[in-house]
Design a protein around this nucleic acid. Structure first.
Lengths: 217, 217
DNA sequence: ACTTAATTTTAGGGGACTCTAAAAATATTT
DNA sequence: AAATATTTTTAGAGTCCCCTAAAATTAAGT
């Protein structure tokens, strides 16, 4: 598998999560920062290799083999993120970009030894579960903060967007994985939330709330 | 810089070591496991970028900028080798191939943090010096075992070939970096050597001796 | 020095991946 | 349901890197 094929598989995997429908060419192109026509070409190639199912104009979905391959890339990505944070002292907003490169290193033995070196972590620094070497992945039940009604107490368990900008915002607000918070009120007009964190109330936009995963206590 | 350009630079660097002459197209092609015509193409590209000096039929040599870039790749390669051996418990015959991939990861910060994590090693598992972040590299004075006359006592300081096959042979003979040995005799016919190692004499072919670096005591 | 051999370069082409522009199919609107 | 808008695919082309085969240059042998 080439670097590019791996990236396509990974993105198709990330877009697959819920609905049973095929993934749209356009959606893949947006994530890949490429053009729909390029996606069509690549998707045909992946279909020839048996990694995706594809019918013209009907979108794409992963085969079992494709899903497994994607999971192995996600596995490597998240293990390297843990390594960068825990062993090399990177901050959680720096690890993603470097892991995008490291996820393509091909050596099963390396991946497994790295996992052992890190003491078999089950989550990466953004709260996402790490698949094991068989491709098993823990399903975490989590909701977006934007979907929580006023009055509920929650705990922060992950982020949807792992861009530097967003993660640095969270650092500034002293919000980390494990932070407890309570939804005080929700503004109907712009869907912004007022939440109680670290003992004081703060207001966050809907865009913020829609990128923060929480678990209801 | 692309993956391929980096490999060319690295190989030109390794071939440059002594003579002041340009490196032959053929020599590069052999190391790259590609064809001379491909080398000509790439070398033109590198020359356009100011990384090598190139005149038709005259061979290639690195510019200062090219040399620095090559040193940074070598630096990454050797640091990752140390990581694999010391932290992940790989054996010295396994680290080279994985490091060939890891050397292309682009993040100066990662390289420097890795170096710090490993406690600023000065040599890789094969005895080769590790360039620092400014591109300074220690010159080690070492000779090939094949050039040592009978009667001299030496210590093993490195290998020229780092293929699995050769390193596993050394393991089998219980020869490692730091092993002391004495040249007992040299056979004129095939240039094979009889050497005293670990208290007992063994005979090694010229091919073996020409791939083992030693320092005279 | 002249012929032969080896090396190196050019010429032309192929595969992987990407793009733009135009055509085809599907979705949406009225 | 017809017209319009959107999405998706095809067609053709460009870049990067590699190849083979043939031509040019340099090196070696007699």
């Amino acid at each position: 598998m080439t670097y590019s094929e791996e990236n396509y598989l990974k993105i198709i995997y990330h877009l697959s999560n819920n609905s049973g429908k095929g993934i749209a060419t356009n959606a893949i192109a947006n994530q890949m920062e490429s053009k729909p026509s390029s996606v069509t070409d690549m998707v045909k190639k992946l279909a020839d290799k048996g990694l995706v199912r594809y019918k013209k104009y009907q979108g794409v979905s992963l085969t079992d083999e494709g899903r497994f391959k994607a999971l192995m890339i996600v596995r490597k990505h998240r293990l390297w993120e843990v390594f960068l944070l825990e062993k090399l002292d990177f901050s959680w907003d720096e690890v993603h970009d470097i892991a995008e490169q490291l996820e393509h290193i091909k050596s099963e033995k390396l991946t497994n030894k790295l996992e052992e070196f890190l003491d078999f972590p089950t989550e990466d620094p953004h709260g996402d579960p790490i698949p094991d070497s068989e491709g098993n992945i823990k399903k975490v039940d989590k909701k977006l903060l934007s979907e929580i009604p006023a009055g509920k107490k929650v705990i922060c368990v992950g982020v949807k967007d792992s861009s530097s900008a967003f993660l640095q915002y969270l650092d500034k607000q002293q919000i980390a994985l494990g932070s407890g918070m309570e939804v005080i009120s929700k503004e109907d007009f712009d869907l912004s939330l007022t939440i109680q964190v670290n003992g004081k109330p703060i207001t966050v936009s809907n865009k913020i709330a829609a990128n923060l995963f929480v678990k209801i206590l």
